[in-house]
Design a protein around this nucleic acid. Sequence first.
DNA 1: AAAATAGTGTCTATGAGACACTATAGT
DNA 2: ACTATAGTGTCTCATAGACACTATTTT
Lengths: 265, 265
Amino acid sequence: MPRRRNAPAAQAAQASPLAEKGAAAERAFLAGYDAARFPRPSLAVDVALLTVDERRLRVLLAQRTEHPHRGRWGLLGGFVGFDESIDAAATRVLKTKGGHSGVFLEQLYTFGAPGRDPRTRVISVAHYALVHPEKLAQPAPKGLALQWADVQVSWAGERGGPAAALIDGRSQALAFDHAEMLGLVVQRLRGKLNYAPIGFELLPLDFTLFDLQKVHEAILGRALNKDSFRRRMLASGLLAATGRKETAVGHRPAELFRFKRQTGR
Amino acid sequence: MPRRRNAPAAQAAQASPLAEKGAAAERAFLAGYDAARFPRPSLAVDVALLTVDERRLRVLLAQRTEHPHRGRWGLLGGFVGFDESIDAAATRVLKTKGGHSGVFLEQLYTFGAPGRDPRTRVISVAHYALVHPEKLAQPAPKGLALQWADVQVSWAGERGGPAAALIDGRSQALAFDHAEMLGLVVQRLRGKLNYAPIGFELLPLDFTLFDLQKVHEAILGRALNKDSFRRRMLASGLLAATGRKETAVGHRPAELFRFKRQTGR
DNA sequence: AAAATAGTGTCTATGAGACACTATAGT
DNA sequence: ACTATAGTGTCTCATAGACACTATTTT
């Protein structure tokens, strides 16, 4: 996403006399601005960290240790600091509450219905992050109850709706509106899979074409045609053959590929 | 978008003894919660109202009458009330500052870089709205300087980047990060055109296939194949033939169609 | 008649799905 | 030898683009 800081201030610097008068007026206005005049909602971020393991789409949940919804499972969440960007807050929450960093992370949607948090008005900017299961071995930050849950949606295609999270096969009532957030994540992923190289974020450095297909199938919730999938992926130009093969697999070993990063990414 | 209010409170009502104890503790916690402990950013919405007129994609701009960026053109914006949902705020801003209601309106992305507003920390939830040019005749709310500007992007396809707004052919420096917002709107529209019936929002009730094609071309920024476009649209099942034809057009009149709304929408 | 767009028919290129077949590892 | 998956070749079908042609209105 493009982002810019305070560009207008930089433009005001190169001032004509008229512009200088306006700039002075603006400085005076800003000096007298009282930010506390209006009551303001609190701002939070929530992060759905996803992986695909054993053909299943899974999400990392944290058990809430505080009210509200104490004891309930929910996405990784936290408040945004006053001088902290939204991206930075999401990155920090993922690291300190989920123990992961350096993974794909993207903003999803902002939830702000009054009453979604019983404490006070809280706006939450929902994010999703993707990690491959090899990285899962990392120990959870100590003192945190974390658990990977299966993601299950009751709708097909990209229709949308809430998603359920299953721990040991049992559906969990999630905190706040996190079931809606999770459903929206699945919907976004399914849409994005058609045009963005998103599957690679859920795989280790080296992977086989079948591995990649299993990731796609887990996200889409349906089986894909093997032949067509192979051709599409090889034709995409995003795969670099390593020349090496799987070992110890009980059948003919498949070739290992790597993701060929786009130029300038 | 799915939305839910305070569902957890409803669930707490059907209480087992253990759950009742937890609910009591939660009520006690909430009674003692002080929302003012942490400094909080202000929350705003911005709305890019778009139309397609004479094959050009256009956006409604408002001239700022107050600091900061007084005199500059920007999207329609305003603060979110403490008890107001984000959607409601966007609808209200579109109505009171842009004079339009009953149009397609959707959340886009949330901008929250520190310093994007010189007053104080302001988070803005960017939206976009679509209206057809027949509705444009509505008079602007009095006292507001509003102006339709041409939207111009310097990038092709869905690559993304900021967009420029042109009034009388001259590019305007937009307030805040509104050039980024506008660019993101175009990117989103181009993507959405492939799978969502978005073009109809920019057309009057009755329209010809060529009208629809012109809308698509304005959004995509490139010419489309006539034959293929016709076939695709007729095959989509979204068009209802009216049996009537254009009149007074200086050439063979085309048949008028209507948008066949999806069941349940 | 000229101009301009509407609308139809047909050919070709491309990509997905289906299916059959061969290849190569572990057991 | 058997099993399981890898990987190739070929056929069919659906769809997009290109192009040619006819149709129908106003000026």
